[in-house]
Nucleic acid binder design. Structure first.
Lengths: 247, 247
DNA sequence: CCCTCACTTTGATGTGGATCAAACGGGGCC
DNA sequence: GGCCCCGTTTGATCCACATCAAAGTGAGGG
């Protein structure tokens, strides 16, 4: 079993996180070769729109580096972010050509793409791909449901604290030397945070200032966050205090 | 193709909507027999809790009749509905034993259940089941994203109008004789609607009264809704006015 | 080095929906 | 028929967050 994992040719599907999460974890060598044959990379810079709502999308993809967001916009301009894709997350619907929301690069971004139709063919030949995608989609649905609780019932301060803990859990490099400092860079502007949280950017800014004033977070520059005590932050989220730090 | 569909033994998996949506649409006779062997029914009455958050769930299921809801509750009692399951919707995660939210019957309810482990085995043997479940889960994720826009950015009146249009789309019997009346029963109390919409029950009630006062809806009793002109309702949702009535 | 521009912070005021409180209505049961 | 109870409606008040407005900050470019 472990020898089999070691047998995966590391040079194939090289820096592509999809190997770990969506497709390749249980792939055999010949399947990896098929994936190699249909994959290609695309890069975007911060702020660039990848696809507009309603456009055709002829590929599925996995995020290599950077952050992408899915956003819905109402006619009068109100906007709500409905998805935030970090490295190794999957983008696209194998069986559907169009998307229902704008996809935007919120930071510089690299995607590992697979053309849709060959990817579909490969799904037919390789049953565990669909099973793995099902797992990932169910995880995303669970995340969406947490997000709904946040949007529907949490206060502005709880929303900010929850958001920071979500980003910290995925991004933080943490400093176990001595005490438990957790530090990371925010990959979003205050406006994008507001779109994520269903707030205005002014409220986001005020609540960040409030958390800083109360010593829950430290701000080094506008974007770099240091959390001196993760439990203190968790107390602000409104979530049950189970499963310890970054579990 | 159509002859093949007719070849499905109608007496198998008899009144079970899972046949149409999750599993059986492309099943052969022998696969249907395997499904028959592991399926069973469970009934619940309105208000009954099916599973509590954190409990083990040893089955997956499909809603036969009635309505079930998925709800998250914060420690201080704030509640947010995060899923609403109508007939033919699927419940459960094949690969996970526990659930992260309470599952409750909001009306009298019948489920068609499959024990989890045999269902998993069947998924391994029958690749199109995972593909179909992936499709359904992606649809649910799209619905969750619409819901997030509603929770984050819509006004109370828009939330109510959107909710009514969602229920109408799935439930309504409509009366094409003469004009386009659309009528249906609300499967939820005002309180459950409030949990769905991220509002209080008082606000739900006030906004319903408002829509009634303005002639957008008629109320016959507390629960029966008549919509004299669906376009009028759609104008209140804040959504783009594309894809006509009940498309 | 300073100017610019995009992002952010802070301040003053307004308001939609929450909260607290009371009355209403109708179905089931004695 | 009358009473009770649960779900619902309506009213009065409050407050968290939106809105409108202005000033601060810092990175990049001339």
């Amino acid at each position: 079993m472990s020898s089999k994992q070691l047998a995966f040719p590391q040079s194939q599907c090289a820096d592509c996180p999809i190997r770990h999460r969506a497709v390749c974890a249980r792939c055999e060598t010949d399947e990896l070769e098929k994936l190699e044959a249909i994959k290609y990379y695309r890069s975007y810079e911060a702020g660039q729109t990848i696809i507009w709502a309603g456009d055709k999308m002829d590929f599925v993809a996995s995020v290599v580096h950077g952050v992408a967001s899915l956003t819905q916009t109402m006619e009068d301009g109100r906007r709500q972010m409905v998805g935030l894709l970090l490295p190794s997350d999957f983008l696209g619907r194998p069986n559907r050509e169009s998307v229902a929301y704008d996809v935007t690069a919120t930071t510089d971004l690299q995607l590992c793409c697979f053309r849709r139709v060959p990817f579909l063919d490969m799904m037919d030949d390789t049953p565990h791909i669909a099973q793995r995608l099902l797992e990932m989609t169910l995880d995303e649905l669970d995340a969406a449901r947490e997000w709904m609780l946040l949007l529907g019932r949490k206060t502005a301060r709880e929303k900010i604290a929850s958001f920071l803990s979500i980003i910290a859990r995925r991004d933080a490099t943490f400093n176990n030397s001595g005490h438990g400092d957790v530090a990371f860079d925010l990959p979003l502007t205050r406006e994008a945070m507001a779109d994520y949280l269903g707030l205005t950017l002014e409220t986001v800014s005020r609540q960040m200032s409030g958390l800083k004033r109360d010593g829950v977070i430290r701000l080094e520059g506008k974007r770099h966050i240091v959390i001196p005590d993760f439990d203190l932050l968790m107390d602000e989220t409104g979530d049950d205090a189970d499963g310890g730090i970054l579990s």
